[in-house]
Amino acid sequence: MKNILVIIRKQLADTLKNKTILIQFILFPVLTVVMENAIHIEGMQEMFFTKLFAVMYIGMAPLTATASIIAEEKEKNTLRVLMMANVRPFEYLLGVGIYVWTLCMIGAMVMMMGVTGDRRPAFLGIMGIGFMISILAGAAIGIFARNLMMATSLTMPIMLILAFAPMLAMFNDTIRKVAKIFYTLQLKEILDGMNPREISHASVMIIFANAIVLLGAFIFAYQRKGLD
């Protein structure tokens, strides 16, 4: 328990100095606030940018941040030092996961400024679930990759699919049908409705299936590579 806090504190100390990660966390929240306030087009869907960027945020920030934190720590061998100092793998992973999730949730709260009051809990709930699934995917990549470079090249295509499929799906029906199997598109459609009572069973099942598949990938990567 104490070690989880140590890991979170270490990451916090690192955040302000780690520009590549920091930009991941603040890019979409800032973009959302700016676009929502600057652009108003006749007939545009309500909270268009908030919903779009929220899903892109889910598909990018937690995924790349988690993967690169773990991969860098492996590459520099600091993870080995932590393990030799009796930090257990689950403590480390939980610490990183909680840290990434918390920062993303702060970003989500910034994005939430354009969301009307009664919908805010639903918005945060959806974001929180999305972040968790993405963190799982990021952790699987970070564990599987041998170094930071490999992590980046593995993250890139997955991130593009998860983050951009929901946007492309708005313009192309074929893409929409295919992309429906990804949790980000499902979350986007739930965000569009933003009504917990309207969420379909199918959506829940698909998101759940995504989480299970990624949990499987995470366990596979962990069993194959461990944390060393």
């Binding site: 061998n77 600091t78 030092v81 009796n86």
Partner: peptide, 23 residues
């Protein structure tokens, strides 16, 4: 070990702080 790394972006004190807390 020669390959045991440091947290490059943290200060000297910051590096030791992490392990002081663990130990």
């Amino acid at each position: 070990m020669d390959n045991f790394g440091l947290y490059e972006r943290l200060s000297c004190a910051g590096n030791l702080k992490v392990f002081a807390d663990i130990y």
